[in-house]
Design a protein around this nucleic acid. Structure first.
Lengths: 356, 356
DNA sequence: CGACCGTTTGGTAGCGCTGTCAATAGTTCT
DNA sequence: AGAACTATTGACAGCGCTACCAAACGGTCG
């Protein structure tokens, strides 16, 4: 006796096909390769589907076709503004396409990342977006063994697993420090929190620039593995002043820290930029609004997410990009906080772009 | 002739069962209701699965069982800090469980929300988390017709679709305004951006409190449908001062606006709190770090997300909560920006909790 | 006019797993 | 000891869709 597992009211592809007067497989094709149908049938299936309010069963599709339409996204943090901008770009790009995002949070742990990667790959994602270039060797092998398109995000480097989009953190930081040097600063401090790979590369950019200028001094560097915050910016700055009271400028590895430094200066009656220059990194919205306005390095986060998702989707549809590594560049947004009064400051924006 | 669609190396449940010396269905049960197996078989299946590196095929499971292990989450914004905190709570709660998050962004549109809801429901999610209580009537019907657990987030009200967790925005705002009145303020401005339902309820709380005090004045209210930003806070504050130059305090519907007001005060040499009191809403991290420190209303966003996800998971596992509506309350964090010098300010935190 | 070829359509047989129900083994009770 | 249960296990038949192959169709060309 036939079991009744199927609810009678349920609309399956068969029902649509019946109403349209075609075979189920033809109806199926309408949803995947409509251009393969004659106009006649195409219209018939379309109206039948609409009339019945048909919605494809994704699980059945995935099972039958042995693939999903899911793009896995691995990011280190859900809270950090940087990633929420990237995410927004990704979701915007995917919106309207037939693909779906599966998001997971690595919490800045490459072991956690590897674990999540295994989970994702087991479900045969259509594509993958991962953050950074510092995966575990196992993660790397897993990704290389996979045939779905993969984009590495936030950085650039010379051996992408597949595709890559980002910018050089070291170069961006170099540009910011050079600007401070141009302003006549000699004792430029570095403040960094969390010290994830990207912050570390910014630090390398700082260190190299200072070394080249003959100004490197370990007392000028204050970092912590703690997650970033505005409050922490104030604390780190206090530490910096304790170690190097003659500091004349601070480069903060992100904008939260910079805001914290600004507040701490105010608390200590240190005038900015007269006595202390401040630069941040990322150019969050508030930097342009602070008093004084705060210099920062603008990165194209939304664009990065959007382009990454577009690259993945294009690759899945067989349109491989001409260049596998996309450098989105950065822009040093020079503002009041790093313009020494009396100096001939280039108030204009200093642009550093992909092509260099 | 049998077609070869299955790759030879692939590990299916059948392979695991064979190695363990049990039937496939028994192996299947191991992954769903291990307690139903005898210790003997449980161990055999477990080691067989591990040896083969078996990973269940979720699509097949979903198709066969007619349900998924996906929790759909609908939030209005990916950028807003408020939601990233909530999201983090949700992801943390789901982490380790067998459930998966499917996230979608309504962009503050209830029509978009309805559309996404249809997509989600068509895939038979195990549970649903939606933002707010202002769905379209169609959305409401769709949700009521569904039998999966649903949590409405960010607000409380008296007719939940299913479950609800949040706090009263009007009450929270009332508490903040009352505090300003206590400080002797009479011309308290209201600044609001985006004006989504939650901000509107905060506005109602403001309006009612002012009316009760006999201090309501439309000139004290400046709102805009534009998305919020620090810069916008400055702009709205400028508008407010133009309309009501005698304003002695500002309540900002969120903290970004409050920070913008602080900067604008600095720009205009208005001293805080001597000449102007400022209160924000949400209590983002930077509020406690600003100079002067800024008063705000703390809401338990992370907890909200975490508890919402836990409630959904518990309900799916058959553990319905004793109370369907959970009020997480709020706390007015009184700081320097709203303490009139010379006034006997209650510097301590004023707590308003669920039980009231 | 029939061979030939590209386009469109349909039939068949699963994809890998689980719901349902029946069967078997193991206990307890009268 | 046999009945009456309960705890385990297994057989079977799909879930709704699509890959693969074959057939039908329509037109071209020598």
């Amino acid at each position: 006796m036939a079991r009744k597992r199927t609810k009678p009211g349920k609309i399956r592809l068969t029902e649509v096909a019946k109403l349209a007067g075609v075979s189920p497989i033809t109806a199926s094709r309408f949803f995947r390769t409509p251009e393969a149908l004659s106009i006649n049938k195409r219209v018939r299936v379309e109206s039948a589907a609409k009339e019945l309010g048909y919605v494809p069963n994704l699980a059945a599709r995935a099972l039958a076709s042995q693939r999903t339409e899911v793009i896995g996204v691995l990011i280190p943090s859900l809270t950090n503004n940087v990633f929420s901008d990237v995410l927004r770009g990704i979701y915007d790009a995917v919106d309207g396409s037939r693909y779906t995002i599966q998001l997971a949070n690595t919490r800045y742990s490459i072991l956690q990342e590897e674990k999540l990667l295994r989970v994702f790959l087991a479900q045969k994602p259509a594509g993958l977006i991962v953050t950074g270039i510092d995966q575990t060797p196992e993660s790397r092998s897993l990704m290389e063994a996979t045939d779905c398109p993969i984009v590495q995000l936030m950085e650039i480097g010379n051996n992408p697993v597949d595709m890559m989009i980002g910018f050089s953190h070291a170069d961006a930081c170099h540009a910011a420090i050079s600007h401070l040097l141009d302003q006549g600063c000699r004792r430029i401090g570095f403040l960094g929190a969390r010290m994830d790979p990207r912050v570390q590369r910014r630090f390398l950019g700082y260190q190299q620039t200072m070394k080249e200028a003959g100004l490197a001094d370990p007392r000028l560097v204050v970092t912590t593995p703690l997650p970033t915050s505005v409050t922490l910016g104030g604390t780190l700055f206090a530490d910096l002043l304790a170690k190097a009271p003659d500091t004349d400028a601070v480069f903060c590895a992100n904008d939260d820290l910079a805001l914290g430094v600004l507040f701490e200066c105010r608390r200590r009656q240190i005038s900015v930029p007269e006595q202390m220059l401040i630069s941040g990194f990322n150019d969050l919205e508030f930097m342009a609004s602070a008093v004084p306005t705060l210099t920062s390095v603008r990165t194209n986060r939304y664009e990065m997410g959007r382009t990454a998702a577009t690259m993945v989707i294009d690759a899945m549809d067989g349109r491989r990009p001409e260049q596998r590594v996309v450098d989105l560049g950065y822009t040093v947004m020079v503002r009041q906080s790093t313009l020494r009064p009396g100096r001939s400051g280039r108030v204009a924006v200093e642009r550093q772009s992909a092509a260099e």
